[in-house]
């Protein structure tokens, strides 16, 4: 069941159509846990793009020699490799961020988003396609984390911080503490999901009408 999209399509489908968080609702654990700020979301997203792309490539390369019965353990080993790389690099060059993201970086190994793409896509498709799929889905995921993080950070602290610089300098309003807690994360996620669903459905309706 080789994918029939154009190569560009393999990349762009991850942004909206097969958006990991909002459309497929996978990879929710880091989505809710680390998105208390825009910057957190960005770095977590970068880590996932890296891991997903390389794990997809590895799985795709070895797909012909992987026995079906034990493919999941093999996937996990293949995924763990880039994860360890990311973890060590982050620990070395971004120790502050590594401390903030904490356990969620090593936990990427068992993130269902990565395994899902390996199982559903890379295991059945060519290396080039798998790499583009990983990049696209990963980028979509990073954008999700950044959007959720930005909303939660802005509402929860009253401003957006980039390192030592914050914008605006003083909070515009009384921050809503709840947005930094898991319930705030769920609410943000749910609302964004609903909005995206409405937009996609309207686009499909328009398309159906135009073709009719």
């Amino acid at each position: 069941m080789e994918s029939k999209r154009s190569l560009i399509g393999e990349f762009t489908k991850g942004l909206i159509e097969e958006n990991a968080t909002f459309r497929m609702a996978i990879g929710m654990c880091p989505t809710l846990a680390v998105t208390t700020s825009l910057v957190n979301g960005f770095w977590m997203g970068v880590a996932v793009i890296f891991v997903l792309t390389f794990s997809n490539v590895f799985v795709s390369i070895l797909r012909k020699v992987t026995p079906d019965e034990i493919r999941i353990p093999i996937f996990v080993i293949l995924i763990a490799t880039p994860v360890v790389i990311v973890e060590l690099v982050m620990n070395a060059y971004l120790p502050e961020m590594y401390r903030l993201l904490g356990i969620f970086v090593p936990l990427i190994v068992v993130n269902c988003l990565i395994i899902a793409r390996a199982e559903a896509f890379a295991y059945k498709n060519s290396v080039i396609r798998s790499a583009l799929d990983g990049l696209g889905i990963g980028t979509g995921f990073m954008i999700n984390l950044m959007v959720i993080g930005a909303i939660r950070e802005f509402l929860g602290t009253g401003r957006l911080a980039f390192g030592s610089v914050a914008f605006p300098a003083e909070p515009l309003f009384e921050p809503m503490a709840v947005m930094l807690t898991p319930p705030g994360g769920f609410v943000t996620l749910g609302v964004l999901m609903a909005i995206l669903n409405i937009l996609v459905r309207r686009a499909q309706l328009r398309k159906a009408k135009a073709s009719a």
Partner: peptide, 10 residues
């Protein structure tokens, strides 16, 4: 419940 969690002091 939401405003209680958002602005507990108020």
């Amino acid at each position: 419940a939401f405003v209680l969690a958002a602005w507990p002091l108020h």
